[in-house]
Design a protein around this nucleic acid. Structure first.
Length: 359
DNA sequence: CTACATGATTGACG
DNA sequence: CGTCAATCATGTAG
């Protein structure tokens, strides 16, 4: 930065104030202050070239002399005025910069993802997880995965915030530095407050572009985390015993038409503490797998057929029918095993049958 | 570790 | 849109 100061003092000196008796190398060309500006250019260039050869002491001396010149304040203010005008005219071209849509998108996403939100740390996060588990669809395993997910998210969040803080600090530090320099220089060369302001704006833009990279990579990390944790296929849990029992019960007691209606699915979902789509998945899998290999499911079918038969018997208080365990194949379910699953009349499978097994 | 069981996903189909 | 069929990826019994 001393170079620049030196340069400026040199240039200001060139523009007409150089009669000050600063050094002996000016002595030879005193005459250029009046008259032909064309011819001066050569001298000026010479002088510019000479500046690099000058020592810092010389420059300092020159600067000092310059500042002490009696005409300096007046000329300086004129220069400031001129510059103000030109700067203003330049500024007119590109005045208001629109907020970057890209960065706004990233901001929104980080906010939505809870990375840049107001809430901080464990307590409220845990509370949110608990609330989600209590209110939401999957009370069993969901909370565990959620807490794991939350932990990772908090980690990302921590990194993001510390980095962001570092950026902000660096930015303000740098801005301060530049402002100090400009203020310092404004004693030597014309710098309007607006110019400083503009410079600060430029610095902030630069830093925000760096910030955007940070935000972008944070977003990416969150997306990856999300896809990892929300891809349920990776975190498949088998349903618990009771749930499969309920499902199987329904399946085998509706073997002739194992297509639960939407309401039936909802009911089953509620009973099994799973979602409706999980019920649909289960029935889809069950139907296809049953059809593929009926023999393999024979035992299971018998078991549930007996179970429902017993239930029905206990309801109708007629126990005499249920005492043929020796040949179950020809018994209760022989007709249902031979039923074609393909046929599915969609009208009458109400939940009345489940109801009396349940109650 | 292997083989099988099982919940979820995907693409085709009506 | 719901279902089928194939397939994936994980869970689990041996």
């Amino acid at each position: 930065m001393e170079d620049q100061a030196r340069m400026m003092s040199g240039l200001v000196g060139l523009s007409g104030l150089s009669q000050v008796d600063v050094g002996d190398h000016d002595a030879g060309r005193k005459q250029h202050s009046l008259g032909q500006p064309q011819q001066d250019i050569g001298d000026i260039l010479q002088q510019i070239m000479a500046i690099t050869d000058e020592s810092l002491d010389e420059a300092q001396a020159r600067k000092h002399a310059l500042n002490c010149h009696r005409m300096k304040p007046a000329l300086f203010s004129v220069l400031c005025e001129i510059k103000e005008k030109t700067v203003l005219s330049i500024r007119g071209i590109q005045d208001e910069d629109p907020p970057d849509p890209q960065i706004m998108r990233l901001d929104n996403m980080l906010l939505a993802e809870g990375v840049s939100g107001p809430e901080k740390g464990g307590a409220s996060a845990a509370a949110a997880a608990v609330a989600a588990a209590a209110a939401g669809g999957s009370p069993n395993d969901g909370s565990i995965e959620h807490s794991d997910y939350r932990a990772k998210l908090t980690q990302i969040r921590g990194i993001y915030h510390s980095e962001l803080e570092k950026y902000e600090q660096a930015c303000s530090e740098f801005t301060n530095h530049v402002m100090n320099l400009l203020r310092e220089q404004s004693r030597t060369r014309p710098i309007s407050p607006k110019e400083i302001e503009r410079m600060v704006g430029i610095i902030h833009r630069k830093f925000s572009s760096i910030q955007m990279q940070l935000k972008q990579s944070t977003c990416e990390a969150v997306m990856i985390l999300r896809s990892r944790f929300l891809d349920a296929r990776r975190k498949r849990r088998n349903f618990n015993k009771q749930a499969t029992e309920v499902l199987n019960e329904y399946f085998y007691s509706h073997l002739s038409n194992p297509y639960p209606s939407e309401e039936a699915k909802e009911e089953l979902a509620k009973k099994c503490a799973i979602t409706v789509s999980q019920v649909s998945n289960w029935f889809g899998n069950k139907r296809i797998r049953y059809k593929k290999n009926i023999g393999k499911f024979q035992e299971e079918a018998n078991l549930y057929a007996v179970k429902t038969a017993v239930d029905a018997a206990s309801v109708s208080s007629q126990a005499s029918q249920a005492n043929s365990p020796a040949t179950p194949n020809s018994g209760t379910h022989s007709d249902i095993t031979h039923t074609h699953i393909r046929v599915r009349p969609r009208q009458d499978h109400s939940r009345s049958d489940i109801k009396h097994t349940q109650s």
